[in-house]
């Protein structure tokens, strides 16, 4: 019987974790999705995430308002996105290499200026306790849901609608599908890509602020463990579809919550192995989602070349 309760609480903790750990994934993967829809890969979103976490935390601490922190985190992400887009405007510059460089640079800057904010504690983002009806602390903890999660959930259909119906959304898709077609329509390819990379970078920054302002909820140098990079794989798995990005993010959140959930019921064996679960999952998914022919359904046409 006791074992039964243990298993249940693991399941609830994993479901709660899907929401709690998955929220930053939603933002980063939607950001990457938008950037890739315009035909460019930004591998530097990991840097945006860490930078967003640092600025969000610092601004929240200095101003006392976590929402101002979120805004600052988004803006810092936008700046990094613009930098990436400007560097990549030249054909001879490889966008993946620039992404790696941006990641190194942004992480360095964030750690440099973040040194001063490791100790103090900043005001957190509010959450809504949906589990207050329950007396079980496990359910309470699992249903304590942050406001940013709902923002992320709303953002996914909004982005799908934006890409499908609006004029700007169509411009993004045309540029991503075929730069030649976009040119013949007289579009400014670089500007569309700049704006998409900027907006995508901003979303990743917001995702970062969630890390430092809600869960885990403090700024430290080991805060991100590659979520920004996994988002790139996640977008491939989601076939460049914003709604799928949302579901995939929740799946990843659950996978990442597996290790801590098992530890909380006293299963310590293999804690570090379970920590690798999201990475293994990503790899398996990437292998399954790829095809020997090189094209994947839903992939923006510019990547096929």
């Amino acid at each position: 019987m006791e074992n039964d309760i243990g298993l249940w609480s693991v399941l609830i903790a994993v479901l709660g974790g899907a929401i709690r750990v998955g929220t930053p994934f939603i933002f980063v993967s939607l950001g990457e999705c938008l950037t890739e829809k315009a035909g460019r890969i930004n591998l530097g979103l990991e840097g945006n995430l860490i930078m967003g976490a640092m600025t969000g935390y610092a601004v929240s601490y200095l101003s006392g308002s976590p929402w101002l922190g979120v805004l600052a985190a988004g803006s810092s992400g936008c700046v990094l996105g613009i930098l990436h887009a400007l560097l990549c405007q030249n054909k001879q510059v490889n966008d993946i290499a620039v992404g790696i460089a941006m990641m190194l640079f942004a992480t360095g800057i964030a750690f440099f200026y973040g040194k001063a904010f490791i100790q103090p504690s900043a005001p957190h983002l509010p959450s809504i306790g949906f589990g207050n009806w329950s007396s079980s602390p496990v359910i309470k903890a699992a249903l304590d849901i942050n406001v940013l999660f709902f923002l992320g959930v709303a953002l996914a259909p909004a982005m799908a609608w934006f890409l499908r119906t609006t004029r700007w959304g169509n411009a993004v898709r045309v540029v991503g599908e075929s730069s030649d077609a976009a040119l013949s329509l007289g579009m400014n390819i670089n500007r569309v890509r700049l704006l998409s990379t900027m907006a995508g970078g901003g979303l990743a920054g917001i995702g970062g602020s969630y890390l430092s302002l809600y869960y885990p909820g403090s700024w430290s140098e080991g805060l991100s463990s590659g979520q920004g990079l996994m988002a790139v794989a996640l977008v491939i798995f989601a076939r460049w579809n914003p709604m799928n990005c949302l579901y995939a993010s929740l799946l990843f959140g659950g996978a990442a919550a597996l290790g801590p959930a098992l530890q909380s019921v006293g299963i310590n064996w293999g804690y570090y192995l379970f920590n690798a679960a999201p990475y293994v999952l990503t790899l398996v998914i990437m292998i399954a989602a790829s095809s020997a022919k090189g094209t994947v359904r839903g992939m923006p046409g510019e990547f096929v070349k």
């Binding site: 790139v232 491939i236 690798a276 790899l283 020997a292």
Partner: peptide
């Protein structure tokens, strides 16, 4: 299989 080598190699780091 046309799996993006940059991302797969990075995931293997974490693993």
């Amino acid at each position: 299989r046309n799996v993006n080598e940059t991302i797969s190699s990075l995931l293997l780091n974490y693993i």
